[in-house]
Amino acid sequence: MAAPAGVPAPASAPPGREPLLRVEHLTRHFMVSGTRIDVLHDCTFQVTRGEVVAIVGQSGSGKSTLLNLLGLLDRPSGGTYVFDGVDTTRLGEGRRSHLRGEGVGFVFQQFHLLERRTALANVCVPMVLAGVPLLSRRTRARALLETVGLGHRLHSQPHQLSGGEQQRVALARALSREPALILADEPTGALDAASSTMIMDQLLEQARLRDAAVVVVTHDPKVAERADHVVELVEGRTL
């Protein structure tokens, strides 16, 4: 059962399981016109494989900044972020990029699909960048789209798909390299209630099926209720 908002993630991993990611006293600040802006002050939590964690908080609390740090798109100003046993704060850009490409899948609110490409081609994109052979990537993309219920939409372009279908294509794309961590930034924010439920069903199913960790940033209490644990951000701090 999900923890209510305001209850932090557990301080230790389940017995016999090491956390996939461990965040300890993470901070992030930016310099704007010579003024220091502190966005994250002290974030500490961890997530294990097969677990779905919701990050909640008011606008401006630092949720997207934290997600960028977890996805290795940005570096913290202080603290420690250990991902799959690797202290990422000590890595060079090349190693961080490799770890991000191999280990992290992203799902965004606005889908970010290539408009003139089919659903199949969109799911193939990360595998093209990784150098996966043509036949292998097409076979895998087809299987993923069938998994999310879009086997009949392989050759449809984004403008021919509903919002919920586009988000399922984006989810299949995020899974294409079998990431250990799936990061979802308001994945249901642009969807109706039925589509939102379907996307959360898929995220939970994929976490269990692939033993992947899922971290969801959301404003929707119904989404947070379905997570295993909730991490609340208040003025840049985890409670």
Rank of each mutant, 00 (worst) to 15 (best):
S97R: 04
L72I: 00
A54R: 13
N122H: 11
S59I: 11
H159A: 10
S61N: 13
F108R: 06
C124I: 10
L66Y: 15
V104E: 03
A170L: 07
Q157F: 15
P76D: 13
E115C: 01
L145R: 01
P133T: 03
E115R: 11
F83L: 15
D74I: 13
T48V: 14
Q46D: 02
S77C: 09
G79N: 01
V82Q: 09
A170Y: 05
E165D: 06
Y81R: 08
Q157I: 07
S77W: 03
T147N: 14
L113T: 02
N122P: 13
L120V: 02
L150R: 03
V107S: 05
R137L: 08
E165P: 05
T48G: 14
R138L: 11
F106E: 12
E51L: 09
H152M: 06
G57L: 04
T147Y: 15
P179D: 08
S59M: 02
S97G: 04
S162A: 02
P133C: 00
T65C: 13
T88K: 03
L66M: 14
A141P: 02
M127L: 14
G78K: 07
G79W: 07
S136Q: 12
L161F: 04
R75L: 14
R96D: 12
L70N: 03
K63V: 11
L171C: 12
R168V: 05
Q160N: 00
R173C: 00
G60I: 04
L69Q: 02
G85L: 07
V107C: 05
V123P: 06
A143H: 08
